[in-house]
Simulated assay, not measured.
Amino acid sequence: MMTKTLLLSQDDIARIIAAVGRDRLMDLIIARLSEGLSRADDATSETPARSGFVRGEDAAGVLEWMPHHQVGQGITIKTVAYTPSNPSVRGAPTITGVVGRFDVISGRLEALTDGIFLTALRTGAASAVASRLLARPDSRVVGLIGTGAQAVTQLHALTRVFPIERVLVFDICRAHQESFRSRVEFLGLSVEAAALPELERNADIICTATSVGVGEGPVLAGEELQGHAHINAVGSDLPGKTELPREVLMSALVCPDHPEQALREGECQQLDRASLGPDLASLCRRPELGAKSQGRLTVFDSTGFALEDHIALDVLLEIANDLGIGTSIQLEHFPKDPLNPYAPSASAGLSMPTSFDVAMS
Rank of each mutant, 00 (worst) to 15 (best):
E308H: 13
A81H: 07
S85G: 02
P239I: 07
I16W: 10
V254H: 00
A291W: 10
V89A: 12
V20C: 10
L331W: 09
P344I: 09
A348T: 03
E200C: 01
R183Y: 06
V152Y: 09
A40D: 14
Q226L: 14
A221G: 15
G326M: 07
V20A: 12
Q269K: 05
R140G: 04
G146T: 03
S275A: 15
E224H: 14
A40S: 14
W65R: 08
R174L: 12
G107E: 03
F186V: 09
T113W: 03
H228Q: 02
V98H: 02
A194I: 04
M250A: 15
Y342S: 13
R50Y: 06
H258Y: 11
I17H: 14
E223T: 15
A151C: 04
L283D: 10
T208D: 04
A151L: 08
T298N: 05
R296L: 05
A346F: 11
L331P: 06
F170S: 15
L199D: 06
D257E: 13
I311E: 12
R174N: 03
P137L: 07
I329V: 15
A274V: 10
R22S: 13
Y342L: 15
A233E: 01
E185R: 15
R246D: 08
A252Q: 11
F305I: 00
F356C: 08
E46D: 14
E308V: 03
E265W: 06
A233R: 00
A274Y: 03
R285E: 13
A175I: 12
T208H: 10
S345K: 08
A128V: 02
P245L: 11
F53S: 09
S51T: 14
G21L: 13
C173Y: 10
P259I: 12
R140H: 02
T210V: 02
D42Q: 15
I311P: 06
N340E: 14
I164E: 09
R160H: 07
Q226T: 03
R296F: 05
P278S: 08
V99T: 11
Q73Y: 10
V214P: 07
G97M: 03
C268F: 06
K241A: 05
D314W: 03
D279Y: 12
I13D: 12
L121W: 05
T123I: 00
D357M: 08
R296E: 11
A195F: 02
A193T: 12
L196Q: 08
A233N: 03
G324R: 07
L187Q: 06
P256V: 08
D138E: 13
A193D: 12
L297I: 05
E57D: 15
A312K: 08
G324H: 07
L244R: 03
E223S: 10
V219F: 00
G222Q: 02
Q269D: 05
H68Y: 11
A312M: 06
L244E: 02
E267K: 04
L25S: 13
V248H: 00
L6Y: 06
R90N: 13
A203Y: 00
G61E: 15
